[in-house]
Measured scan of single mutants.
Amino acid sequence: KELVLALYDYQEKSPREVTMKKGDILTLLNSTNKDWWKVEVNGRQGFVPAAYVKKL
């Protein structure tokens, strides 16, 4: 599985998104969309802005 690092805090704005804190390590589930990547964090799956994370 591929991991990404949260570069910034992000507060979810819809049920399809997830909240993350700067420094969190997230599991990358899908990065086919250039703007929104699907990740898993704390057992929850959802989208975060691709610009807010970096592949490890």
Score class of each variant (00 low, 15 high):
residue 30 N to G: 08
residue 10 Y to F: 08
residue 47 F to R: 03
residue 37 W to A: 05
residue 33 N to T: 07
residue 30 N to P: 03
residue 42 N to P: 10
residue 31 S to F: 07
residue 3 L to M: 12
residue 12 E to N: 07
residue 53 V to S: 01
residue 53 V to D: 00
residue 54 K to C: 13
residue 2 E to M: 11
residue 29 L to Q: 04
residue 54 K to Y: 10
residue 43 G to K: 06
residue 31 S to M: 10
residue 56 L to V: 14
residue 30 N to C: 11
residue 38 K to F: 15
residue 49 P to Q: 02
residue 24 D to S: 08
residue 40 E to P: 00
residue 24 D to E: 12
residue 41 V to I: 15
residue 13 K to M: 14
residue 39 V to D: 00
residue 44 R to D: 04
residue 14 S to F: 07
residue 25 I to E: 04
residue 30 N to R: 07
residue 55 K to C: 09
residue 8 Y to G: 06
residue 4 V to F: 07
residue 48 V to D: 00
residue 38 K to E: 15
residue 27 T to G: 08
residue 16 R to D: 13
residue 28 L to Q: 01
residue 8 Y to V: 11
residue 35 D to I: 14
residue 54 K to F: 09
residue 20 M to H: 01
residue 18 V to I: 14
residue 27 T to I: 15
residue 36 W to S: 03
residue 8 Y to S: 09
residue 46 G to V: 04
residue 41 V to F: 15
residue 47 F to T: 04
residue 48 V to I: 09
residue 53 V to M: 06
residue 32 T to P: 04
residue 31 S to W: 08
residue 34 K to N: 13
residue 39 V to E: 00
residue 32 T to S: 15
residue 44 R to P: 01
residue 36 W to K: 02
residue 28 L to Y: 02
residue 55 K to F: 11
residue 54 K to I: 15
residue 50 A to Q: 07
residue 13 K to F: 05
residue 41 V to G: 14
residue 20 M to T: 04
residue 32 T to G: 11
residue 1 K to Q: 13
residue 13 K to I: 09
residue 2 E to S: 10
residue 37 W to S: 03
residue 4 V to A: 13
residue 26 L to T: 01
residue 7 L to Y: 04
residue 39 V to A: 02
residue 3 L to G: 03
residue 49 P to L: 04
residue 33 N to V: 05
residue 10 Y to G: 00
residue 28 L to K: 01
residue 25 I to A: 03
residue 24 D to T: 08
residue 53 V to T: 04
residue 39 V to G: 00
residue 3 L to D: 04
residue 35 D to E: 13
residue 9 D to E: 05
residue 21 K to G: 05
residue 24 D to C: 06
residue 19 T to M: 05
residue 9 D to F: 04
residue 16 R to W: 15
residue 52 Y to R: 08
residue 32 T to E: 14
residue 36 W to V: 03
residue 16 R to K: 12
residue 47 F to I: 07
residue 38 K to P: 02
residue 48 V to L: 02
residue 29 L to C: 07
residue 38 K to D: 04
residue 7 L to N: 03
residue 42 N to A: 14
residue 52 Y to N: 08
residue 56 L to H: 06
residue 26 L to C: 12
residue 52 Y to M: 14
residue 29 L to G: 01
residue 5 L to D: 01
residue 47 F to D: 04
residue 29 L to M: 08
residue 11 Q to F: 15
residue 14 S to Q: 08
residue 45 Q to K: 11
residue 44 R to W: 04
residue 4 V to H: 03
residue 16 R to T: 13
residue 37 W to H: 03
residue 53 V to N: 00
residue 47 F to M: 10
residue 42 N to H: 12
residue 44 R to T: 08
residue 20 M to P: 00
residue 23 G to F: 05
residue 42 N to C: 10
residue 14 S to I: 05
residue 19 T to D: 04
residue 19 T to E: 04
residue 20 M to R: 00
residue 46 G to W: 03
residue 24 D to G: 04
residue 43 G to Y: 06
residue 51 A to C: 14
residue 18 V to E: 01
residue 3 L to H: 11
residue 2 E to A: 11
residue 54 K to N: 07
residue 36 W to M: 07
residue 33 N to A: 09
residue 51 A to W: 10
residue 54 K to G: 10
residue 23 G to Q: 02
residue 26 L to F: 06
residue 38 K to S: 08
residue 38 K to L: 15
residue 55 K to T: 09
residue 2 E to R: 11
residue 27 T to A: 11
residue 7 L to C: 08
residue 50 A to V: 06
residue 4 V to S: 03
residue 21 K to P: 01
residue 30 N to Y: 06
residue 27 T to Y: 12
residue 31 S to Q: 11
residue 24 D to R: 03
residue 39 V to W: 00
residue 15 P to N: 11
residue 31 S to V: 07
residue 51 A to V: 10
residue 34 K to I: 10
residue 8 Y to R: 15
residue 26 L to N: 01
residue 13 K to L: 10
residue 16 R to I: 14
residue 37 W to K: 01
residue 11 Q to G: 08
residue 3 L to C: 11
residue 10 Y to R: 02
residue 36 W to P: 00
residue 1 K to W: 15
residue 50 A to H: 04
residue 38 K to N: 07
residue 10 Y to H: 04
residue 3 L to N: 07
residue 6 A to F: 01
residue 7 L to Q: 05
residue 39 V to Q: 00
residue 53 V to L: 15
residue 10 Y to T: 01
residue 39 V to P: 00
residue 7 L to G: 02
residue 10 Y to W: 11
residue 48 V to F: 00
residue 1 K to L: 15
residue 4 V to D: 00
residue 20 M to G: 00
residue 20 M to N: 00
residue 49 P to A: 02
residue 20 M to V: 12
residue 28 L to A: 02
residue 48 V to Y: 00
residue 7 L to A: 05
residue 22 K to N: 05
residue 35 D to L: 14
residue 41 V to R: 14
residue 15 P to V: 09
residue 15 P to A: 13
residue 1 K to A: 14
residue 38 K to I: 15
residue 12 E to G: 15
residue 31 S to I: 07
residue 51 A to G: 12
residue 33 N to P: 05
residue 18 V to N: 04
residue 44 R to I: 09
residue 12 E to R: 12
residue 44 R to H: 08
residue 28 L to G: 01
residue 50 A to K: 05
residue 25 I to R: 05
residue 56 L to S: 04
residue 32 T to I: 09
residue 24 D to I: 04
residue 37 W to F: 08
residue 27 T to C: 10
residue 7 L to W: 04
residue 18 V to D: 00
residue 53 V to H: 00
residue 23 G to H: 05
residue 7 L to I: 10
residue 49 P to W: 03
residue 46 G to P: 00
residue 29 L to F: 04
residue 54 K to T: 14
residue 11 Q to N: 14
residue 22 K to G: 05
residue 24 D to N: 07
residue 26 L to P: 02
residue 40 E to W: 06
residue 23 G to I: 00
residue 8 Y to E: 11
residue 40 E to S: 09
residue 40 E to V: 07
residue 17 E to A: 05
residue 9 D to G: 06
residue 41 V to S: 14
residue 55 K to S: 10
residue 46 G to I: 04
residue 28 L to V: 07
residue 31 S to L: 05
residue 44 R to N: 07
residue 53 V to K: 00
residue 17 E to S: 07
residue 6 A to I: 02
residue 8 Y to T: 10
residue 43 G to L: 05
residue 30 N to F: 07
residue 21 K to T: 10
residue 9 D to T: 06
residue 9 D to I: 02
residue 34 K to E: 12
residue 44 R to Q: 09
residue 29 L to I: 15
residue 15 P to W: 11
residue 36 W to Y: 08
residue 4 V to Y: 11
residue 49 P to Y: 03
residue 17 E to C: 07
residue 39 V to S: 00
residue 5 L to M: 15
residue 56 L to F: 10
residue 32 T to R: 10
residue 16 R to Q: 13
residue 14 S to T: 12
